[in-house]
Every structure is written in C-alpha cells, then in structure tokens.
Simulated assay, not measured.
Amino acid sequence: MSERVWVVTGVSSGLGLAIAAEVARRGDKVIGTVRSLSKFPDSLREAGVVPLTIDFASSDAHIVEVARTALAVYGWVDVLINNAGNTTSNRPVEELRIEDIRSNLQVNFYGVVAFSQPFITHFRERRTGHIINVSSVGSIVNGPAWLPYTASKAALDVFTETLTHELKLFNVRVVSVMPGYFSTNIFQSSTDWREISGENGNNSSTMSKIYTDRVTQGYDTINELPRSHIASGQIGDPEKLATRVYELVTGTGLLKNLVPENGGKWEWNRVPLGPDCGVALGNRLKELKDNVDAFEEVWRSTDVEPERLKSFSRG
C-alpha cells in the first residue's frame, strides 16, 4: 500500500509526540499540530513531520479553517488522531471553578468535534479513513477530584460511539483508545500542578481543607496518582502505545485479528491501553452489571400496561 497521510494533534510531547514519531519512522507522512511553532519538537521536524499551529480554545471557525488547511497539505488524509488535550483543575466539585470545567470541555471535546468535521466529510466522500480519539480510563472509571477532565473524556467517548454508527456504512472506522497511567506531562497542564517535594509534597492552597481523604476524596490526587503508580511499578510506555495505535490502523502486529478487515467487530471501538486500564474497566463492568441486576424489579415495573398500548398509537 502507498504511504498514508496522518494528522496527529498535540505532538509537542507525550503520547502525540510518540505517535507522530512512530508513524514517521514507519514511512508514512505526518502532519502534527502544536499550539505554537516554538513547541514543535526538532526530532519531528528532522523526521519530515509537517508542523501546523492550532489552539483548541480558539473559535470554531478558526479550528475548522486549520482542519481544512491540514487536508490541503497533501490533498488527502487517511488517519486523524485526536490527541491534543489538557486537564485544568483537580479539585472536589464543591471547590471547582465552573470556568475550569468549560475550559476542559472546550479543548478536549468541543474543539475536537469542530476539528473533526471537515475530516468526517473527507473520509465519507472517499469511503475510507480512521478517526482515533485519545480518551482515558477516566472516561468510564471516574475518580474523585477529576471532574473537568473525565467529563470531557466521557463526552469524547460518546462522540466515538455516535460516529461509529454514522460512518460504518461509509467504511470509516472510529475508535477511542483509552490509556491508563502513562509517563507524560499531562498533569503539568493542570492549574493545580505542584512539584513533588519530599514524601508529603508542598503545602498548597489548592489542596482542600475539607475533602482530605486521599483514597475516597482524591486529596492531593495530582501527586498521589503518580506516587501510587511508581510504588506499584506500573507505568505505561508512550512508545509502546504508539506502536499499538499504528497496528490499530494498519491491522498488523497484536491488532491483526482485532480490526474489521481481518474479522474483528466494528463494535470493538474502545481499546484499553495499560494493565491498570484493562483491570479497572473489567471491574467497572462487573459493578454496572451488579447495579442493573439489583434494580431489575424496579426497571421492569415502569412500562405502561399492555391494554393501554392502543392509547399510544404515535408512541
């Protein structure tokens, strides 16, 4: 097959950088977005990755314009990786600023939808293409003190599910990849980020004076979460994630038999990445089933009686 064209958003560091580098190394063409050209890595420039600037907090019209610019670079695109995102604040809901929630939804969801729309048209018309949304284990397994981030990622998963249904007949695949804990600088984008200093970290006004339980209330979670993964010896490798994403698109390696063209199911549109993610999702599924089973008598009790159905001719 001839070389593909990929658009990868948020390539300045972390998962986006790893994905762009892996794809370029494999010989495909890559367009990588950053908020500022000063943040574009020299390593990607040397690998031939084309830089493109975009701020997902900007207007819808500007975001769409940049997407169209990306489509014009080579005249076509085969793969869109929606990776760019941030986390604004990690506080209990009572202590959150509403603007922090709006900000996360803008960058991680609204901006992604706006950027994707020109690609959706392009892929539909070509009847081929991949949209890979970088979600999170937190989109389903929600912990305390992460509402802005996890709400935006949950919305991103709904976007994936919706597009899967809408684009299947056009042979366009849409998937959420769901990383657990990986070694990136995502936490540094939080307004509550504090450098870890010693065993207990710094005292800071961003740590709640009321919600102080580290386990159930997420006290100091932005430092506790990395500490816990270091202690358990479980940290994801961005380069390995990048390889799995490449295999997901190309139907090779560990993903060979899990993609539709090789017998996989279109409905397999969530890809857990990291043992912590896989285990957490499995546990969450058990919790949901237990919840549904416990309330079965209740949810079965709320339909109208069969003899009254004739009164609902229009539903």
Rank of each mutant, 00 (worst) to 15 (best):
V11I: 05
V11D: 03
L17T: 01
L17R: 00
A24I: 09
D28F: 00
I31K: 07
V34T: 01
S36Q: 12
S43A: 09
R45P: 13
D60G: 15
A61Y: 12
H62Q: 11
V64Y: 13
L80F: 10
I81L: 11
N82T: 14
P92E: 09
E94F: 09
E94M: 07
I98F: 09
I101G: 07
N108V: 13
Y110G: 04
G111K: 08
A114K: 10
Q117S: 05
T121E: 08
H122Y: 05
G129Q: 02
H130Q: 00
G138A: 10
S139E: 13
V141A: 09
A154V: 06
L156I: 07
T162F: 11
E166V: 08
L169M: 15
R173F: 12
R173S: 12
V174A: 01
V175R: 07
S176P: 06
S176G: 07
P179R: 02
G180I: 03
N185H: 06
N185T: 10
S190W: 00
W193R: 07
G201I: 07
M207C: 11
T216S: 14
Q217M: 08
Y219V: 15
L225N: 15
S228T: 09
H229F: 10
A231M: 12
A242G: 05
G251T: 04
T252D: 00
K256M: 03
E261I: 13
W266Q: 12
P272C: 01
P272T: 00
L273E: 12
C277L: 08
R284W: 09
L285G: 01
E287N: 10
D290A: 10
N291Q: 03
S301A: 11
T302P: 04
D303P: 15
V304D: 01
E307Q: 02
R308F: 08
L309M: 13
L309T: 14
R314E: 14
